[in-house]
Design a protein around this nucleic acid. Sequence first.
DNA 1: CCTGTTATACTCAGAGTGAGCATAATAGGA
DNA 2: TCCTATTATGCTCACTCTGAGTATAACAGG
Lengths: 310, 310
Amino acid sequence: MSPAVGPRPVTIELNAVLVALIGEEPQVLTLQDGALLPSGPFEGDHPTLQTGLRAWVERQTHHPLGYVEQLYTFADRSRAEATTGRRIVSISYLGLTRERVAAGKREPGWQSFYRYFPWEDWRTGPSKLLAHTILPRLGKWSDEAREPAIKRERRQRVAVTFDDSAWNEELVLQRYELLYEAGLVPEAGRPKRPVGDPVPGEPMSYDHRRILATGIARLRAKIKYRPVVFELMPPDFTLGQLQRAVEALAGRRLHKQNFRRLVEQQGLVEETGALTAETGGRPAKLYRFRREILLERAVAGTKLPLARSA
Amino acid sequence: MSPAVGPRPVTIELNAVLVALIGEEPQVLTLQDGALLPSGPFEGDHPTLQTGLRAWVERQTHHPLGYVEQLYTFADRSRAEATTGRRIVSISYLGLTRERVAAGKREPGWQSFYRYFPWEDWRTGPSKLLAHTILPRLGKWSDEAREPAIKRERRQRVAVTFDDSAWNEELVLQRYELLYEAGLVPEAGRPKRPVGDPVPGEPMSYDHRRILATGIARLRAKIKYRPVVFELMPPDFTLGQLQRAVEALAGRRLHKQNFRRLVEQQGLVEETGALTAETGGRPAKLYRFRREILLERAVAGTKLPLARSA
DNA sequence: CCTGTTATACTCAGAGTGAGCATAATAGGA
DNA sequence: TCCTATTATGCTCACTCTGAGTATAACAGG
């Protein structure tokens, strides 16, 4: 069990889920007409994985990456292995970048999250696609199970991940995997499933749609306890814009007044002093992110009933 | 940007942070008299990384792994690279396993968390090591900075991560990294720092102490929103034992009555019906983990002010 | 039967959160 | 000019959650 000198050739590949908000839609950078996430080899002359990724992305997009976070490392993929004989290890990252085009102009390569996961967008109310198509078909899948135990387990998993009365927007990956298991979405490069009529939502090549699901899920979880939305916002913004940004990522509507209360009382923003009348109604105050907050506080998050708080 | 066939030889290595509770101490499995985490090559004949890790750990420890989670993938390490010329990518995992020895007998290889991070143990009150040794030296390090801006930034980072009036037990890694930056802990295989008199706490070889810090941090965060403690508990336990387990991991004391309330009202446990008198005082009811809960509910966690929850 | 120890039940105040009412300030059209 | 629609902003209220503590129960050992 000493440090190993491995027996089999291996290739390292980096995958990036690059997110930007373009015109209040959450978008991800793709290649090949939306079928691929950007990916490339890890070049050994970079000191770390993260600097390698940054350099490579910034060279490709001519744009600085605001925030980068490692998502997951997969090695369980057939992919090119069959042909080359090499083991491919793929390390995926989530990166956030600021919008840089006019909201009107359509950037090539950027695609909405919800092109791939239409059932994840609840901003206009409970997803009709879910109620009319997905849930019935998942119900059928559950009923198809022969053993009662498996049937019960399937039903329960569907209920937990897709329950529309207690929708949990973080379960993007679990929902995708359940749909995959049920044969409702296709996925290349994995053990074949009997996919009949796939559910709406674009597929991607290889496991890139799964990686995207992982990235969206991580991002949806993260915005709740770290101020990462601001990496996607312009320097100045109104609270309404900020709210619509969060709504776009989370895929659901928020209570306006309570959202303001939360943002303000946490000291995340400060007024610039200016107003903007471009919002359609009463002019709104402009705010900017208080970067100092990153130094002032660490993460939040406690759920332990602590004793003697001094 | 097509899937890559890399130019440089690479070796994949797996590292495991294997945790067990032995006699109410949180312990990690080590080799070489505590200097190494178990690590080994990823053998290409396993379909996935996780199954590879499981098989390998269970072969080494003759013991099933209850819970496994990927921690992080590093490639930024000099290590054996200098000698072999190969790039080493190390994928680390956190694994939880059940105690299997009598509390008295000392298992070889298992070491307490707090042998490596003594300042992380607040179970007997605020760490004296912190107040008497670490904080003064970190203060000195801050003051050494020439530029006022850097001085201020150092002070603020120390305040956020080490603040003993609002101790955040999750910041294990941030604290370790700060100590490393300040030259207060040694670390092999990294750019040398002028380490004078190191702060108490055992070092490890390579970057294993850093990986351990990552694992402890992840575990401390996880116990707050997922019922993973039970992976470390015997089948039947009292609420007092459960509390001391959580305290051991979190490194701090909890309010007993509120801890019970939390555990009970979340439906995490059920009474077995039996009592045990081995706790020293009034006999305690025995409980067991309600595995069904894993199917009944997904994660918790919302901090968004949702609209119309109808 | 007193003392120390752990277990268990219950209460209470304050903070945080979901939900909604009310008002302000703009644009555009009747 | 004055409605109306729209967005922004301020404030209240009830309910739940959580920290903190009081009180009582049930054992062991001297």
